[in-house]
Structure formats: C-alpha cells, structure tokens
Deep mutational scan, measured.
Amino acid sequence: CHSECLGNCSQPDDPTKCVACRNFYLDGRCVETCPPPYYHFQDWRCVNFSFCQDLHHKCKNSRRQGCHQYVIHNNKCIPECPSGYTMNSSNLLCTPCLGPCPKVCHLLEGEKTIDSVTSAQELRGCTVINGSLIINIRGGNNLAAELEANLGLIEEISGYLKIRRSYALVSLSFFRKLRLIRGETLEIGNYSFYALDNQNLRQLWDWSKHNLTITQGKLFFHYNPKLCLSEIHKMEEVSGTKGRQERNDIALKTNGDQASCENELLKFSYIRTSFDKILLRWEPYWPPDFRDLLGFMLFYKEAPYQNVTEFDGQDACGSNSWTVVDIDPPLRSNDPKSQNHPGWLMRGLKPWTQYAIFVKTLVTFSDERRTYGAKSDIIYVQTDATNPSVPLDPISVSNSSSQIILKWKPPSDPNGNITHYLVFWERQAEDSELFELDYCLKGLKLPSRTWSPPFESEDSQKHNQSEYEDSAGECCSCPKTDSQILKELEESSFRKTFEDYLHNVVFVPRKT
C-alpha cells in the first residue's frame, strides 16, 4: 500500500485506493498535508475557505447554543480562536489581540433580562453583547459592586439597553466600559436606550469621564423622579442622539420631579488639616426662599486615587461607600458681607490618608415646582503625618564578641513616609551569675543571650482551647457569634421535631 494509506488498500502504491488515510483526505486521495488554498479540518480532512465560511455563517444565523462559528488559524479551520487571539470578521482569520481579548457573548432569543446578581454573573467577562440587555433589578445585597464585577467589562451592545423598574439602582456607572450601543435591534418605538419607572436612579454616568455613542435609535425617559433633566440632556449631547427624540420621548413632568437638581456650584473657602482632623468651610448658599434650606450634607471617604465619582458603590438597598454628615444651616444675616460661612470639623480620621470630599445642599421643593440647590466639586484632601507606631517583631542576635545583629519589621501604621529608623542602645553591667558559677561542674549549661522565638506554653494553649472559665478566673470563653447562636437554635429545633416524629412513629394507638 501507499505510504499515506492506513489499515489496508485495494490497489498497491495508489493513494486513492486506501481504506483510511494516515494524515489527511483531499478529493478522494490521501495526502501528507493540505496544500494551499485548503485548510486542515478536524485533523483528517482538507477543506477550502468557502466550506469553513459556510459553517461560520450557519452557526451565526441559527443562534443555536453550542454550535461553533468556525475560524481560520495556522492553516486550520477550527471552532474558535485560541487564547490571546480574536477573529477578523472580513476573512475569519485569528489575529493577536492588542491588550485583553474581546469576548463576544451571543444571547438566546436576542435579549437577556438581568433581574438578579445570579443572572448578571452569566455575563461575567463579556466585552461584546450580541443582542439586547434588559435591566430589571428590584433589590439585593452589595448590588453596585456585584454588577460592576460582572457587567463592568461590557464595551458594546449590538441591540438596545433597557432599564425598567430597577428600584435598587442609583447610577449606571457599573457599566464602566460601555462605549457603544449599535441599535441594530430596537425596542418598540425605535428606541435604543429605554429608561422607565426607576424610582431611585439619580445618575446615568459621570459624563466628564465617560463617552457613549448610540449609532441608531432614540432615547426614552419616563417616570424617573430623581433623575434630573440636565442629566438626560447631557446624554443626548454626548451620545449623538440630540435631535432624534420626539416631543413625548422625554417626559418633562415625570423626570426629576422629586430630585434636588443642583444648578449652582458650592466653593470651599477654608481648608485646614491635622493628622486626624480636617476643618472645612464653604461659601454660604440661600435659595430664593431661605426657609427652603434644610441644611447641608457632607460626604467623605478614603480615596487612594483621584478618580472618585459621587455615586460609586451606591445602591438604593443601603450600600453606600460614603460617610454622610448632616449639618444645620448657619444663622442668616441681613448683611451679605457678614454672612457666616458654614463648615464642619471632621474628626477621627487616619493620618497621612487622602480623602475625597464634597458637600451639597438639602432643600425642600418650592411652590413653583422649581428645584434649587448647590453642590461642590469633589475635592481631595490629605491629612498630615504623625509619629508612626512601633516597629514590629524586633530580633537581636550576637554573632561574635563585638557585634549584635538587630532586625525588625516595619510598623503596622507608618502614618507617613518613613525615611529612617533611630536605634538606641545602652551598655549593661555583666551578670554576677557568670562569676559565681563553678565551671568545672559536669552538665553545666552556660547562660545564653542568643534570641529564641517566643512560644506559647501548654497552660496558655489549654486556656485558649477551654470553653469555660478556669477556677483562677484568668480566662473566659469568647462570646458566641450570631451565626453560632442561630445554628444552635436550628439544631435544637431539629432535635425537638425529630423526637416528636419518633414518638408518633414508635407509639401507635392500640386498636379498641
């Protein structure tokens, strides 16, 4: 048989008469490798580009789960590009990614509803959504962080984005990388972005840091009482949809009607710091009717980097990364020049730590249904340095008659930039024990000054392991946590139920 035959053949030295091919099969003959313009397919066939392209389009058009959109890589027609490569849609070739590779997620039936953290986790790592997304989240724990972890990498949506009755959302900033909504599939009414009845939605994105392009379709905003109209108009300008909307697409009466839409800028007039305090004062603000001013709200939190936005980490279910302080308005003076500047002394802060701070007014709604208010920009203030805590785990070892090696770990709280350490030492008198000992005694162990690591005695271990207080009263049991108490109650309830079950099964009433 021919060298490319495997198993047997019907005619000697003829690659077209093989029972099976050793390498690849091409047009009725066995070959060692697939010549151009053919590609290896499933490690035994040679196919042309049209064959591989037909497989790709067949799966793409069917949208069946589990099928493969075949691509070409290293002269092979394979189910998908290997790690580190992405497909070129024009020629199906796998090309190296520039940075992290995109991950295209194809949605069944063309859309997916995100109504819980669990459903959001199914899209973790996706960068391109081939379909439409509907966000409908009523509640949950730590929602802002969970949504950002699972949806934060999405850069492109081919269909539309719909935010509907998501009472738990305060902001859409968890879509931190969303840059493009194509609108290839539109919501009824030709809408590519749809926001309806979101009672706590206050911000779409921080438009000073976020760009969003909507290729096709219109915007729809109705019944978002805490979303200011200025935020919607800003989205029109940034996304390129200005002029597409009709009169009733953006409701003037049901958007922002319960919001404090600040239209003035508060400026800080005085800032002073110490290692654990920050004193702030800002310019006074009074609405047209000074009785509408209820006070100020001061927001602050630790910020290692200057990239904080107002609604980071917030949701309507209680999660809030900001510390909020309510401040009463100052006494009002008739003389504008003698107006008191409101302020606040922030206490209990960490030394040498940068804080993000902003302040906003708290006002009631005027009778004319106009909203007044003022808010400052987010500023960054760093507390002063102070003395560091003591170095940890000092170790001293003498390696000769004239040297001592000293080692330690950095302090747990540096409280500033540590530039150097101060080492103090003092000579001590020799131990009298060394002169009084009889060095001729056998088995004498000389006193040693070398360091030995501390260890816990058996008594201390027994005390720590004991669940009861000892007789001397030195140790006591740790208080039980809520989960331990709940577990004990469940076990007790189970024992009672099981005992009742045994009584009912074992003891049967005697027939009379």
Rank of each mutant, 00 (worst) to 15 (best):
W344Q: 10
K253G: 07
D393A: 14
A251F: 10
S274T: 11
R291A: 05
H106R: 12
R179C: 13
G318R: 02
H106E: 15
G343S: 03
G139C: 04
H106N: 00
E302D: 09
K177S: 13
E156S: 04
R272V: 01
E310V: 02
K350D: 15
P288N: 12
E302V: 02
S319Y: 13
S166N: 04
Y300K: 02
K112H: 15
L294K: 13
R179W: 05
R370T: 07
N387R: 09
L196R: 07
L201P: 00
K218S: 01
V363P: 10
K301W: 04
K209Q: 11
F175D: 00
I188A: 15
I379E: 03
I404M: 06
K350C: 09
Q258I: 08
P287E: 14
L107N: 14
T254R: 09
N130L: 13
R281P: 00
G152V: 06
A251H: 14
N255Y: 07
W282S: 01
S338M: 11
T353Q: 10
R291F: 05
K103L: 08
D384Q: 07
I188G: 13
L151I: 04
R369C: 09
D367V: 06
A303N: 07
Y305T: 12
H222V: 04
K226P: 02
P410A: 15
A385K: 12
Q354A: 07
L252G: 07
A374G: 11
I379L: 11
W207P: 06
D289Q: 08
R247A: 09
I163A: 04
G256S: 07
E237S: 07
I395L: 15
E146S: 02
F193I: 09
H233K: 13
D315R: 12
V104L: 05
K253I: 10
I157S: 00
P351I: 06
Q216V: 09
Q258S: 12
H106S: 11
F174K: 00
I163M: 12
V381C: 02
R370M: 07
N150V: 05
E283W: 06
S333M: 13
Q339E: 06
V390L: 10
A149K: 11
R247T: 08
D312Q: 02
L153T: 12
P287V: 14
L331D: 12
D315I: 03
P391L: 09
D367S: 09
L280C: 15
E122F: 06
Q382N: 12
T273G: 07
P287K: 03
Y160N: 06
D328M: 14
S400M: 04
E246Y: 08
E237P: 08
L280Y: 01
M346Y: 01
P342Y: 12
G256H: 10
L172W: 00
L196W: 15
W207C: 05
D335Y: 15
W286H: 01
S389T: 14
E184D: 14
N399M: 04
V397F: 14
E302R: 13
K242T: 04
G189E: 15
P287A: 04
Q258A: 06
G152T: 01
K218V: 15
E246G: 15
K350R: 14
E187T: 07
Q203M: 11
K350S: 11
I327C: 01
W286F: 05
N224T: 05
I157E: 00
T371S: 06
W352R: 04
P394K: 07
K375A: 06
S338C: 15
N224Q: 07
M346T: 03
I357R: 00
N198V: 01
I135M: 04
L229Y: 11
D335H: 05
E237G: 04
Y305I: 06
D335C: 10
G217D: 02
R176Y: 05
Q245D: 03
N190R: 05
V170K: 06
V324E: 11
K337W: 14
D326V: 02
S398N: 11
W207L: 06
N198I: 02
I379D: 01
P394R: 04
R347H: 15
N307V: 09
N263L: 10
A259L: 11
E283V: 13
Q203V: 05
N263G: 15
F311I: 15
K209T: 13
E109A: 10
G159E: 00
I181R: 00
Y305W: 15
Y300I: 07
Q339P: 08
I357P: 01
L172A: 05
I134S: 10
S166G: 07
R370L: 05
A316M: 03
W322Y: 14
S338V: 07
F193E: 00
L266G: 02
S158K: 06
I250N: 10
K242W: 14
S398M: 07
D276G: 05
D377Q: 03
M235A: 15
Q314H: 04
G152W: 09
I114G: 00
N307D: 15
G131C: 01
K234T: 11
S269D: 06
M346R: 02
S333E: 14
I357M: 01
L266K: 01
Y194W: 11
S173T: 07
D377S: 14
T241V: 08
C317K: 02
G240E: 07
L293C: 07
V397A: 03
P329I: 11
F358Q: 14
F365G: 15
P410L: 06
L266I: 07
L331Y: 10
R244G: 11
L147A: 14
K301H: 12
S173Y: 10
L161S: 00
F358K: 14
S239F: 06
S338W: 14
Y191P: 10
L153P: 12
T323D: 03
H222R: 11
G159S: 03
F358M: 10
P351V: 12
D292C: 11
L201N: 00
E148Q: 14
N320Y: 15
L201D: 00
L349T: 03
W207H: 08
V359K: 01
S192Y: 01
S158Q: 08
G159H: 02
P342E: 13
W282R: 00
E237C: 05
W207I: 05
S260V: 09
H233P: 07
T361W: 08
K301N: 13
A374D: 03
C228F: 07
S269T: 13
E146K: 13
D249A: 05
V170C: 10
K409D: 10
K242G: 14
A374T: 07
Q199M: 11
L280R: 01
A120I: 02
T213E: 04
R281H: 07
I163L: 04
N399W: 11
T383F: 00
D384R: 13
N263D: 14
T113K: 15
T215R: 12
T127G: 11
V381Q: 11
S401A: 12
F268W: 12
L178S: 01
N334A: 07
I214K: 01
Y160G: 10
L252C: 13
F268T: 03
Y380S: 04
I135S: 00
I129C: 15
A374S: 12
C228N: 08
I188T: 13
S269H: 15
R332W: 11
C228A: 14
V104C: 03
N255C: 14
S166I: 12
Q354V: 08
S119Y: 07
F299G: 08
S400L: 06
W408S: 01
I129K: 00
P411V: 13
T241L: 11
Q403L: 10
I114M: 06
I157F: 02
T254H: 12
L133A: 04
I137S: 01
S396W: 10
I379Q: 14
Y223G: 07
